[in-house]
Design a protein around this nucleic acid. Sequence first.
DNA 1: ATAGTCAGGTTGTCCGGACAAAGGATTGAC
DNA 2: GTCAATCCTTTGTCCGGACAACCTGACTAT
Lengths: 268, 268
Amino acid sequence: MQLPVNKCHGYARAVPKPEVDSTASLELGVDRSSPVPLYFQLSQQLEAAIERGALTPGSLLGNEIELAARLGLSRPTVRQAIQSLVDKGLLVRRRGVGTQVVHSQVKRPLELSSLYDDLEAAGQRPATEVLANVLEPAPAQVAAALQIAEGAQVHRIERLRLTHGEPMAHLCNYLPTGLFDLDSGQLAATGLYRMMRAAGITLHSARQSIGARAATAEEGERLDEPPGAPLLTMQRTTFDDTGRAVEYGTHTYRPSRYSFEFQLLVRG
Amino acid sequence: MQLPVNKCHGYARAVPKPEVDSTASLELGVDRSSPVPLYFQLSQQLEAAIERGALTPGSLLGNEIELAARLGLSRPTVRQAIQSLVDKGLLVRRRGVGTQVVHSQVKRPLELSSLYDDLEAAGQRPATEVLANVLEPAPAQVAAALQIAEGAQVHRIERLRLTHGEPMAHLCNYLPTGLFDLDSGQLAATGLYRMMRAAGITLHSARQSIGARAATAEEGERLDEPPGAPLLTMQRTTFDDTGRAVEYGTHTYRPSRYSFEFQLLVRG
DNA sequence: ATAGTCAGGTTGTCCGGACAAAGGATTGAC
DNA sequence: GTCAATCCTTTGTCCGGACAACCTGACTAT
């Protein structure tokens, strides 16, 4: 498989093993005075190198020992950097072989993302129309999802998301009171998740359900679809890192203009 | 928060700090003669304890140093065990505070799972009807997804999945030739992913797209739905750890009988 | 009473080393 | 020439220790 390359390895260390260490030509280095962890610096540099194509898919990374020595780091630190990229699905390790850049196109392993951010990343310049922003007693289903008493006061936010002037999704969200103030102006200008993060809430996990159903007359009118037209639906409950439910949403999408696309990894 | 449970266990080890170490009353231990890694043994035991409720949500885990000493392990090993559970979303670490069991209900963070396994786990006893299992030239879209030449031979498998005697989903899958033999009998008795794993293929990642559309007359007849009824659709390309595309599938589901439910974590 | 300071406890990061396990390639025997 | 045994390389696991960063609660000074 490997041609017998003319290995004239005297001391003239003219590229010792060029075909088995793609990091040799990379300029890697860490800043020990920086507060950002060394393993993180390294993993970011490697990820950037993969991103811009300096590390091509399938190329070997060179063994950890040598890499550590070259960077003046310990092997555990280098391993931690590599491991984080393995967890992201960018690298694959094989005992006895080495670490190589994964072959396929891995974009993003499905983050807990907001529709607004998704659209903005796609260059769609989304517009938002706030249809409602009120306080009201929680219906039974909402109270159950948010783990609060039925009838307790909750915020109800209804929004219409448009792209290119056309409606794309109808978003109905319920939030517990007292988390942060819900300014309608901000709601129109940015996404809900961004507002929550800005308010110091660290999102942890979400439970989602994606389905489909026929549009009611009211739904059809909102989204500019005929009654009975297929709609893509999503319900989601979001939790912060203390386990509190911080948001429950019911969304409907026009399937001609939106679909859920994501990448997922097998969990080791 | 935690009542001081009266644990009369043996020689008066009168629970040093009962409210700050919920693992104290657990019987944890590792088998050093086992080939399974120590950190994995520990993480499994902790996960099982969480699963069965021995470790209640919000309870502290006790500091790593002491836990390591109690088990006769080193701190890095204990950390590795805990870290794997943090990655799964079962635990939350806070510097200066400790490690605690996450409060919310985290079931499964969206694995790369097969419909068959999902149904079986739900106790549905799925049935499969193999409608087609043939070799044919790859259409353009399939060839692009599988990264092979257009017109190259591929397997086409069409199946109908039923629960309680009613059709639930129509599955159309394309596979490259030469991976493994596709026995129709096995296809009817188990899932495609299980067959692939059994054939030594290690799945790595998949790219999915979930949408909705109205049923055509043919689709409606297959799934016992009227034409124009809303259907839930999913396309998926699966890759193995070498980056090869090993499967491309187009599935349609009856939304009244199936929806995608999953949990997702914010990636740190 | 309030605010700032300090100390204790816990996780985060990093180091250096050691041996085991697995895969590939070479070598040897037949 | 083919197959098996062996060696080498590389990652996997594990250890023990050290210091830094951070949070909490108590204490002190205002």
